[in-house]
Nucleic acid binder design. Structure first.
Length: 465
DNA sequence: ACCTTATTGAA
DNA sequence: TCAATAAGG
């Protein structure tokens, strides 16, 4: 009789392409557990939308596991620090001696996993802690054995390694017996989310990957920067909860690039997946990133402004800069924001309002359905010029120019800022004062030229540590 | 993964 | 006036 293998799901909520599930199932019959930690999630600013999607995904998994005859258990405690004892208790009750899970890189998660490893190992439970589930989980290091601090060289090395280690997606676990009764899970912590935009269903997520690669991969590079066009994958909410596995994404890219006779290694969307790996693995080497610290120590000396009215206007999409406001309203209404707009709004907060980038980072986490610590922190520090491979401090987005370039017809603005729906194209990017008055649209909260000068001055001559 | 300003030469 | 280009934040 083979020993029962317990698979602990965390941010990898799927059955397809799941290393821990697949490898555990080779060893014996499996059971699956998820441990909710709602207080901890709140401390980490996880948004209601993200938790809502998570609950839906868990229900989908529970139902499908029941069909396969695989037992699923939902545990709940308050904090990560409560998890080791809860898992130990569960293993002892169920007489389980093998536990499988995949690493996560933020510091609190690393510490939780180490504690689980210690507590369960002491109780003679074998802990199989697999690598973080990235496309390239192996260390990607320079010739000097240092972690890369710039994306482009990281990406070159990453591509080389990826070619060597290419791994096919893992198959979904096989049926393990008669179907079990399905339970309705109790997830009091779940929040509202746009399930019309992101169904909490693994099959639909996988279909979206294929549809995106088949229809949009060719034009991704040329179209991705226009927020009014549906040119991006919109898969990030599924990546954040781990509803899609990285090998499945790579295999789908390779399949459709092959069909189109293109080299998958030059695919621009794959490059975005490399950014995801880049930011996640950085947390292993630079714990200060998980501690609210800037990557560049000298930028801790920047004196950020105190401006509650400005912050509130930014959050609510009432800054008087149409593209910024449209972007923030897209975030508030859907839980998602187009990537180009994330850069524009982050630059606006950290440079033009000169507010501490951590405030923007937090608001994004509290609102985004795809909020994910590594990428969110990485993106904000890039924008604020405090991070790895950061934009130079003087690289400040001009919201009006960005708007003219990437929303030339004002279509995106009109979709989310209805006050401006009748404003002519020529004036939509920066309407004159009297027209704003007529439309009931706010005047600009900052003077762009002056704000730009102030931002450059705030960063200039910082003492090097 | 940016923007401004100065300069030049053409309309 | 205006587009193209270079330099520098």
């Amino acid at each position: 009789m083979k020993a029962t293998q317990l698979v602990w799901l965390r941010n990898d909520l799927r059955l397809d392409d799941h290393p821990a599930l697949a490898l555990a199932a080779e060893q014996g019959p499996i059971q699956v557990v998820f441990c909710a930690t709602p207080e901890q999630w709140q401390q980490h600013d996880e948004s209601p939308a993200k938790l809502g999607l998570r609950a839906a995904v868990l229900q989908d998994i529970a139902d499908r596991l029941a069909q396969l005859g695989i037992p699923f258990h939902l545990l709940e405690v308050d904090f990560f620090t409560d998890v080791p004892d809860e898992l130990l208790k569960f293993c002892q009750q169920q007489n389980i001696s093998e536990l499988w899970f995949q690493a996560e890189t933020p510091l609190d998660e690393q510490r939780r996993d180490q504690a689980v490893n210690n507590v369960l190992s002491k109780a003679n439970i074998n802990v199989h802690l697999l690598a973080e589930d990235l496309l390239v989980a192996l260390p990607v290091k320079t010739q000097q054995d240092e972690p890369f601090k710039v994306f482009t060289p990281y990406y070159r090395r990453w591509l080389q390694i990826l070619e060597d280690i290419q791994q096919a997606p893992y198959a979904e676990p096989k049926p393990q017996g008669k179907a079990l009764k399905t339970d309705l899970l109790k997830c009091d912590w779940a929040g509202e989310f746009r399930d019309d935009l992101w169904p909490g269903n693994e099959q639909k997520a996988l279909e979206r990957v294929s549809a995106f690669c088949e229809i949009k991969l060719d034009d991704y590079k040329s179209q991705r920067d226009f927020p009014s066009k549906p040119a991006t994958s919109t898969l990030s909410p599924y990546l954040a909860n781990g509803q899609l596995g990285p090998r499945r994404l790579l295999a789908t890219i390779q399949f459709y690039c092959g069909e189109a006779n293109r080299d998958w290694r030059h695919d621009d969307w794959l490059r975005e997946l490399a950014w995801r790996d880049f930011y996640k693995q950085l947390l292993l080497y630079f714990p200060r990133l998980s501690m609210g610290k800037a990557f560049k120590p000298e930028t801790e000396k920047v004196i950020w402004r105190e401006d509650e009215a400005g912050f509130k206007a930014w959050c609510e999409g009432k800054t008087g800069f149409p593209i910024v406001d449209a972007a923030m309203r897209q975030l508030n209404q859907t839980g998602w924001m187009h990537n180009r707009l994330r850069m524009i709004t982050a630059s606006f907060l950290s440079k033009l309002l000169l507010l501490d980038w951590r405030r923007g980072e937090q608001y994004f986490m509290q609102t985004l359905i795809d909020g994910e610590f590594a990428a969110n922190n990485g993106g904000w520090q890039w924008s604020a010029s405090t991070g790895v491979d950061a934009a130079p401090y003087f690289r400040i987005f001009n919201p009006t120019l960005q708007s003219e370039r990437y929303d030339p017809q004002g279509l995106f603005i009109k979709r989310f800022v209805p006050e401006l729906k009748d404003v002519p194209i020529k004036q939509i990017h920066n309407p004159p004062a009297d027209l704003r008055e007529q439309c009931g649209y706010p005047q600009p909260v900052v003077d762009y030229k002056q704000a730009r000068k102030d931002a450059i001055a705030a960063f200039k001559d910082l003492p090097k540590d």
